[in-house]
Design a binder for these strands. Structure first.
Length: 928
RNA sequence: GCGGAUGUGGCGAAAUUGGUAGACGUACCAGACUUAGGAUCUGGCGUCGCAAGACAUGGGGGUUCGAGUCCCUCCAUCCGCACCA
């Protein structure tokens, strides 16, 4: 073949790999001495109707390069792909069209698969999984049953079977046990427990399980007819669709992720993940160390619990503030204030989350008329209600210290509540708002006087414990995760109801299949769509749970299933999990920081507790690939005319920018003919050009159809081939950075591949490589390249490797390298990046096995060394000179040579240097 | 406000432990060839300067014989979180 024609070779090799199962990962056999393992994983995609754009494969290409490289380095590589196939878009489409979501999902998956295959990935497709297939979600349901059957043993720091808790209750009751459980769990003695009926015991146990039902304020989106997770809500609107979200009290399944809060925080130390992700997770978990204090209500037997991180400021408390949702409000409010309080609570309730967040500046509140008693000094302090106190954090009540907290300060100023200064020193002037709440030493605080904040904090907590009015407490911002969705297209719960109580479906009856229904909307009375399945009953009698699991259920453990996707006895075999351990490299977007990436860690910790998986953390290293943004182009239409003015002339006219499809633009130059054909209205448009060209404006923004800036990888593959696309996406810039797509410099990468081809074939199609022994120079080039590529892959700096290859090919071309042995080695190191062309040329060299089986060549340092080398010389740090020395020159010889070289080196003032410092291979310093 | 990043030619970017800043690719300029093409090849290309040379890695300071790299400080941009007591 005389010319590089990617379209002719790529399909052929993709077919070859598929038919020969070239990339099949064989399960390790027990007695076999197996290779070291390497698990490289991509975040599996949600197969949306829009298909892949050029940004999606970025991470997949990087992981594919690593996978292919590790294989050739002798690793047993697990590199799978699948689909996160349950989800809202397919369901919404179903609601609109009546089309079953399974059908659209299947179509979308096919489209994705075709697009992925076009790029030549080395996935082991025999391991493909789909979260929506019953063989898969059977085990998602199974994990749910395990969560339901476990409680969290804080003493042991792990999940334990619920039977064990029964035993504990039978011998000790539930008092003085520090076990994470639901609010309002009443206490009982061992004796009482033993007298309970089985049903009563079961009912109590529901409060302790890691999966539990509870009435919760949830983010209810009536437009979508479902509950959303906190991270699915942005600024009071649904992330998907932007519909308003309100808070509503509903019974929901929840997972007790809060029991794992500390472990999830600790685990971050063990994993090599981007700092940004770790920080987001830390933020989300929101651990804060403080103290719980009890304030009794004056003339009442009620009391209010308060969480504070500033127990040291207890003598500065001048009022308490309750969240408007606080349950004691009605009980403590005095009759005189009842009306106002009632109004205020109503006002707060009607304000959506969005409104409340939008104006954090507005101060509002109401006085209840009640007084609480400061537990430290017995002073009465008024109890207020304020919107700025969040029901969901801590106890929904705060002890307000206006002198040490800016929000309390603002509230106190606004309502004219007294302020007691408890700190003195620099930056503690409370007449201005910008005081430092942690500065100075304590005053007006009895036994705390004279201490600094930290000392006072410890002393105050100690005192509270002595007085029995409080205790040290660690509080988390993170809430338990709501696990119910009022949707159709998700995993059904393996749960049925009997006398209003939830029971698990027997394990042997899993999976609970998603029933067929004729309409995917919620029912008229607001029940989830599954309520439409009238005859869907367990054993024909008991109603099933009608909500389904959220999108993140299936994605929280999929990485385990790839290890053994067809196991029908368990989610994954222990020995196999033991072999694969964890994911060595996980590549995916950072948008899942507090969603998938947190939940999956939680499930892994849980499964570790059960002894199913061998590691607490499932992904050793995570890399977030940057987003590829679109580069939109504009034309400038002159107001009121069908005339368009070129970019640099646009200011001379009154113009409106209009998006043009990027496929009609090259290097910002508009293809005027294509533009005229684009739409009828532009057919006789006029153009005001500069230098006979119409230059478009541009902007970098997210790829989207409406901006006409979406680039489909299929088009690039059709024009330049998959290898060019792969190389180019890497060449575009560092993997982690977001960067705009531009087709501008793709031709350089394409030319590179053509040059590779030309090393093997001349223009007449003659095969060039022969058996000549490679010269020293070409060996040096090759070995330097091998070394560089290894280093690049190790630090995932794949963009620079493309440059390295280019330099290598240019140099081999210059010296007309014809050594087949050397060129074959070159193909092996290039093949992870551009596998198709390398397979083709590899075969042309007479190999009959895939290049994927060829071992990666070892580089030899002795072959890299040059005969001579140049030393940079700085004279007093100013002038620089170069001198060439033989390779084995000793440092003192260099020194002598430089001293003797006065005539060669023009010293600044003509005098020879006094001192020459030489470090071999590094520095020469000359002091004149 | 808090946290995480990032600032280097017209553009995308290299420079792994401090050691010739701008590799490689694009764009652009000049030329060659030509079956006129979005092919191929050669040369140029940070700024100023005819040149020698000088100045250049967001700004300012510091450490060092030597700083894109280390330290301090300020600025700009992007991304998270945000009344969390």
């Amino acid at each position: 073949m005389s010319e590089y024609r990617p379209s002719e070779i790529e399909k052929k090799w993709q077919k070859y790999w598929f038919e020969n199962k070239t990339f099949k990962t064989v399960n390790p056999v027990a007695n076999e001495k197996s290779k070291p393992k390497y698990y490289v994983l991509d975040m599996f995609p949600y197969p949306s109707g829009a298909g892949l754009h050029v940004g999606h494969p970025l991470g997949y290409i990087a992981s594919d390069i690593v996978a292919r490289y590790k294989r050739s380095k002798g690793y047993n590589v697990l590199h799978p792909m699948g689909y996160d196939a349950f989800g809202l878009p397919a369901e919404q489409y179903a609601v609109q069209t009546g089309q079953h979501p399974a059908v659209t999902t299947e179509q979308n998956i096919r489209r994705y698969r075709t697009q992925l295959d076009n790029i030549g990935f080395s996935y082991d497709w025999d391991r493909e999984i789909r979260t929506c297939s019953p063989q898969y979600y059977k085990w998602t349901q199974w994990i749910f049953t395990k969560l339901f059957n476990c409680w969290y043993d804080s003493a042991q720091g792990k999940a334990q079977p619920i039977e064990m808790l029964y035993n504990i209750f039978a011998s000790r009751g539930n008092m003085n046990l520090n076990i994470p459980c639901n609010e309002h769990t009443s206490s009982f003695t061992a004796e009482q427990w033993n007298n309970y009926s089985e049903t009563q015991k079961y009912k109590i146990s529901l409060n302790y399980r890691l999966a539990y039902l509870s009435d919760t304020y949830v983010n209810w989106c009536s437009a979508l007819g479902t509950v959303l997770a906190n991270e699915e809500v942005k600024d009071g609107l649904s992330e998907r669709g932007g519909h308003p979200v309100i808070r509503k009290l509903m019974p929901q399944w929840q997972l007790r992720i809060t029991a794992y809060a500390d472990r999830l925080l600790q685990g971050l130390h063990e994993i090599d993940w981007p700092e940004a992700i770790k920080e987001q997770q830390r933020n989300w978990i929101g651990r804060s160390q403080g103290c719980m204090l009890t304030f009794n209500i004056k003339n009442s037997n009620l009391s209010i619990q308060v969480f504070t991180t500033r127990a040291d400021t207890i003598f500065g408390v001048t009022y308490l503030t309750l969240a408007p949702e606080h349950e004691l409000i009605t009980q403590i409010t005095t009759p005189e204030q009842a009306d106002k309080v009632q109004k205020y609570v109503q006002y707060a309730k009607n304000r959506s989350e969005r409104e409340r967040m939008a104006d954090v500046k507005t101060i509002s509140g109401e006085y209840t008329g009640a007084y609480a008693i400061n537990p430290f000094n017995g002073e009465p302090i008024p109890v207020w209600i304020g919107e700025y106190v969040l029901a969901g954090y801590g106890t929904g009540a705060v002890m307000a210290v206006p002198s040490s907290d800016v929000r309390d300060y603002a509230f106190a100023k606004y309502f004219n509540i007294p302020i007691i200064k408890v700190q003195e020193g620099e930056n503690t002037d409370i007449s201005k708002e910008n005081f430092d709440p942690k500065a100075g030493t304590m005053i007006n605080s009895e036994f705390l006087n004279g201490m600094n904040v930290k000392q006072a904090l410890d002393a105050a907590i100690k005192k509270a414990e002595e007085l029995g009015v409080g205790y040290a407490k660690i509080n988390y911002k993170m809430r338990d995760s709501i696990f119910s969705r009022q949707r159709y297209w998700g995993e059904p719960f393996p749960v049925y109801y009997k006398e209003g109580m939830p029971y698990l479906i027997d394990e042997k009856n899993l999976p609970v299949l998603l029933p067929e229904i004729d309409d995917y909307k919620p029912t008229e009375d607001g029940e989830p769509p599954l309520a439409r399945a009238a005859h869907w009953k367990y054993n024909g009698i008991y109603p099933f749970e009608t909500s389904t699991m959220p999108g993140w259920a299936g994605s929280s453990w999929y990485f385990l299933r790839y290890m053994e996707p067809d196991n029908d006895k368990e989610p994954v075999n222990k020995q196999i999990a033991q072999y694969w351990q964890d994911v060595d490299l996980y590549i995916g977007g950072s948008e899942h920081a507090t969603g998938h990436l947190l939940y999956s860690r939680f499930w892994q910790h849980f499964l570790y507790d059960l002894g199913i998986v061998p590691t607490k953390e499932y992904a050793r290293k995570l890399v977030n690939q940057g987003m590829i943004q679109g580069r939109s182009n504009y034309v400038y239409r002159v107001a009121g005319q069908n005339t368009f003015v070129s970019f640099n002339l646009r200011n001379q006219y009154d113009t409106t920018p209009i998006y043009v499809d990027v496929s009609m633009v090259e290097n910002d130059v508009l293809d005027i003919e294509k533009f005229k054909e684009w739409r009828a209205e532009y057919a006789d448009a006029q153009f005001i050009c500069e230098n006979d060209k119409y230059i478009c404006g541009y902007e970098v923004e997210k790829m989207s159809k409406s901006k006409y800036n979406v680039v489909n990888p299929d088009d690039i593959v059709a024009q330049y081939g998959a290898d060019t696309l792969r190389l180019y996406e890497m060449f575009l810039g560092p993997l982690e950075m977001s960067k705009p797509w531009s087709t501008a410099s793709i031709s350089g990468v394409y030319r590179f591949l053509k040059n590779v081809w030309k090393l093997f074939y001349d223009e007449n199609g003659n095969f060039l490589p022969n058996d000549e022994i490679p010269g020293e120079a070409s060996q040096r080039i090759l070995h330097k390249t091998i070394k560089k590529i290894e280093e690049d892959i190790d630090r995932l700096s794949l963009n620079t490797s493309v440059s390295t290859f280019m330099v290598c090919v240019n140099e081999l071309t210059d010296m007309q390298c014809r050594s087949k042995a050397l060129l074959q080695d070159f193909l092996i190191i290039l093949s992870p990046y551009a596998p198709h062309i390398c397979e083709e040329l590899w075969q042309a060299c007479g190999n009959n096995k895939s290049i994927a089986y060829a071992p990666f060549p070892e580089w030899d340092n002795s072959k890299i060394k040059e005969n001579s080398f140049e030393y940079p010389i700085s004279v007093n740090g100013k002038l620089r000179h170069k001198m060439t020395f033989a390779l084995d020159t000793l440092p003192h010889d260099i020194e002598k040579e430089i001293l003797a070289a006065n005539e060669i080196i023009k010293w600044t003032d003509g005098k020879p240097p006094k001192k020459v410092i030489v470090v071999p291979g590094k520095i020469v310093n000359v002091v004149v």
